[in-house]
């Protein structure tokens, strides 16, 4: 047993981006190179030139988490294909920030965990945001939405999601404006169409543009007739998937009439 797997294992478990390259054809089959951000590559694919170009390619994939085969010459030459290297990227899990520690939150935390998210629950109200109510969340924070978003916002990207479940404009508005200032891929807001119309008015008066309002999925979730917190959590997560993959699925936002039958 050698030392590569323990290093890879530690990186994956600590959420540190890592990529494992395995030579699968055209050279010493099975030889490996482990690439982590902020550390020198470990292992050897059989030629220093090949190690160099594969390390560079792997680093480029670290954040995206893309996994696939790349071809090179025996010494790492581009535009040759004798050597096939399988590069598997282990990106840190996508993040979901949930604002509002309500009943729906607990169900959404559970479904998001099944889908592999790192989940943070945030509510400035200390009585609601307790560890006991959300045992499966990765963290429960007592903070104002704008404070948390100012802190973690710059790290959010297209794979991440922000779900605003508070139903209280006092918290919703800073959560939405804070999230719109990030590159987050999904921003959903809970509440009826009437609640959302009022929210849109407040957001406009805060200077939020029409283009930015177009990023807000509200009422949150797909229009699948969800009733329970668990069904609603599925509708929200399904909407996140559909938005990411660009598939057509009926969002509540794009319909009219009541959310529940």
């Amino acid at each position: 047993m050698s030392r590569l797997y323990p290093l890879l294992n530690e990186a994956i478990r600590s959420g540190e981006p890592a990529a494992l390259a395995t030579l699968i054809e055209g050279g010493p089959v099975g030889s490996k190179l482990l690439v982590r951000s902020g550390a020198d590559p470990e292992g050897d694919l059989g030629h220093p030139g090949l190690n160099r170009v594969v390390a560079r390619a792997a680093r480029a994939e670290l954040e995206q988490g893309l996994t696939g085969i790349r071809h090179y010459g025996p010494e790492g030459q581009a535009r040759q294909d004798e050597v096939a290297v399988f590069i598997e990227a282990f990106a840190p899990p996508p993040r979901m920030l949930i604002f509002g520690a309500v009943d729906f939150t607990a169900a959404l935390v559970r479904v998001a965990k099944v889908l592999g998210y790192h989940v943070s629950v945030c509510d400035a109200r200390r009585v609601f945001a307790t560890r006991n109510r959300f045992p499966s969340a990765d963290e429960v924070l007592n903070e104002w939405p704008d404070e948390l978003l100012a802190r973690v916002g710059p790290t959010l990207g297209p794979r991440d999601a922000v779900c605003v479940l508070t139903h209280d404009h006092k918290f919703d508005v800073p959560a939405v404006t804070g999230a719109l200032a990030t590159r987050v891929g999904y921003l959903g807001c809970m509440g009826s169409r009437r609640t959302h119309a009022k929210r849109v008015e407040l957001l406009r008066s805060e200077g939020v543009t029409e283009a930015d309002l177009g990023r807000v999925m509200a009422p949150i979730g797909l229009d699948i007739g969800s009733r329970t917190p668990e069904e609603t959590a599925v509708a929200i997560c399904a909407e996140i998937i559909a938005l990411r993959t660009g598939r057509k699925a009926p969002s509540l936002r794009d319909g009219d009439g009541p959310i529940h039958d």
């Binding site: 050698s2 797997y5 395995t22 099975g30 490996k32 399988f86």
Partner: peptide
């Protein structure tokens, strides 16, 4: 698929 001994 790529199949190997997991000895690394």
């Amino acid at each position: 698929l790529y199949v190997e001994l997991f000895d690394w």
